Structure formats: structure tokens, C-alpha cells
Simulated assay, not measured.
Amino acid sequence: MGFILQVFQQLTGINAIMFYAPVLFQTMGFKNDASLLSAVITGTVNAISTFMGIVIVDRVGRKPLLLQAAVQMFICQVAIGIILLKDLHLTNSLNHTVAIVVVILVCAYVAGFAWSWGPLGWLIPSEIFPIETRSAGFSFAVCSNMLFTFLIAQAFLSTLCHLKAGIFFFFAMWILIMGTFVVFFLPETKGVPIDQMTERVWKKHWLWARFMAEETNRV
């Protein structure tokens, strides 16, 4: 679970959004200041949304937050992909009004990532392991994140060159897979102490409890 959440965090497509942001701001007339402005705006949205996630995560739970953000990010990715596929020409220019819409979609996407898959991709793996294996398990999760950050970064440019605007549909497909995984396979860890994680979470899950049956019988 720790491995999959870290991989999914990279497959949300946050790199695609961040890559296109300076180009989108250039189309709005900011020219040489586009990269700086895009970094400031997306960074501000990211910081504020992360703080919002900290405030609400223990109120609404992990799974609802992940699912809400998956829907939000999916809609934004598909909408951006459609707009760029339809309106982004060889000159890399967009109509001013359309560009503003895309920038709003970018901010909405970054906000959804920042209050869900971004921080929760780290929080949940830190919670789900029993005390006996927590250090080893979380270390494995962190290594998985570093590995797939490297792999996706290496493959991103060539994928972008081949798919162009279609890369947003590619990541939208992964977000759909991620949401489905959360619905059926991710247990809710809200309010569960780490020392009770096995008994209250894994042994009560419809699938993962099967892997705990032998241990339960011995007890």
C-alpha cells in the first residue's frame, strides 16, 4: 500500500501541469515574467491548499479527501487536454480568454493535489504500518517515491513529445484508476492509533483481512 500510494502520487500528472504553466502564462501576455509568475501563483495555491488539507484531513478522513480530489483533478486534466488539443496552435498561443480559463483550471488542479494526494501520499504510509515494521515499511515507501520520481522525470519529456496535449488524458486515466483503487482497496485510517492499526483496520478490511486470518486463528 505504501508503494502504490507513492507511485500514484507521481502519476497524478503534477509534472505535466507544472511544465505547461509557464507556457500558459506566456499566452496571457506576461512574456519574460511568465515563468516567475507561474511559479508564484502555483506555489501560493499549493501552500494555501496544503494548509487547508492539514486543517480538514482529520475531520473528513483520508479516503473522502482523496476521492474528492481525484474527481477534481480528473475534471481539470480532461478539460485542459480538450482546450489545448482544440485551441493550442503551432505558435503555442491561446486566445486570452481561453488562457485565463486554463490558468484557473491549473490552479484548481494544483489545489486538489495539494490538499490530498500530495501530503496524503506521505501521511498514509506513515500510519498504516504496525509498530513492529513501521520504520522498514515507511523507508521502503520513501525509496519507492524517489525511484518513481526519477523514472517519470526521465520518461516525461519523450512522452510529452509523442502525446503533446494528449498527455493530460494519459494522466486523467491514471487518476481514474487511482480513485477506483481508493474506493475498493484503501482502508480509512482516520482516528486510528498506530498500535491498533492491524486490529482495527487491516483485520476488518474486506480483502486485506484474508491475509490476517492465519494470525487471528493463532491468537
Rank of each mutant, 00 (worst) to 15 (best):
E132H: 11
T44K: 08
F140E: 08
T149H: 09
K203C: 13
N95W: 10
W202M: 00
A47M: 15
A136V: 12
C143Y: 07
T216N: 11
Q196H: 13
F3C: 05
F113D: 02
V98T: 15
F30L: 15
V110I: 13
I17N: 02
S135V: 11
T189Q: 02
I48H: 08
I194W: 07
Q154F: 11
G29S: 12
V7L: 10
V183D: 00
M1A: 09
V103W: 05
A172T: 02
Q10K: 06
W174N: 11
H162F: 10
H205S: 00
F211E: 06
W122T: 06
F156Y: 13
Y20P: 01
Q6L: 05
T42H: 04
L84W: 08
S38Q: 05
T42V: 14
R210K: 15
T180I: 10
V23S: 14
P64N: 10
K204P: 00
F129M: 04
T159E: 12
L157K: 12
L88D: 02
I167D: 01
T159R: 08
V71A: 10
Q154T: 09
T149P: 02
V78N: 06
G179P: 03
S35C: 09
V98F: 07
K63S: 01
Q154M: 15
N46Q: 14
L66I: 02
L94V: 12
S49Q: 07
G121I: 01
L160D: 11
V182Y: 01
V55E: 10
F181D: 00
H162W: 11
V71N: 08
L24D: 04
S144N: 14
I128Y: 00
S144I: 08
W206I: 05
A99M: 05
Y109G: 02
Q196S: 12
I56V: 14
A136W: 06
R62D: 09
L105C: 10
T91L: 14
M52S: 15
R59F: 08
R218S: 13
K63W: 05
R200P: 03
I175H: 00
E199S: 14
V101I: 15
H205N: 00
E215C: 04
E188G: 04
I175W: 00
W122M: 07
L67D: 03
N217V: 09
Q77P: 06
E132F: 05
R134Y: 08
A155Y: 07
M178I: 08
A16S: 13
F168M: 09
T180N: 07
A47W: 15
E215Q: 12
I83V: 12
M173F: 15
W174E: 06
C161W: 09
F138W: 09
L105N: 10
W122P: 01
Q9S: 12
V7M: 06
F3H: 09
G13V: 06
V201I: 13
A114P: 03
V142I: 10
L37C: 08
T91S: 14
A47C: 13
L88F: 09
A21L: 11
L163S: 07
C76L: 07
F171V: 03
M178F: 05
Y109L: 09
M73R: 01
R218H: 12
L84F: 07
A16R: 03
G2P: 02
E199Y: 05
Y109F: 14
P64T: 07
I83Q: 02
G118E: 04
G137H: 01
I104C: 13
Q6P: 03
M178G: 01
M173G: 15
F138H: 12
I17P: 00
V60C: 11
L65V: 06
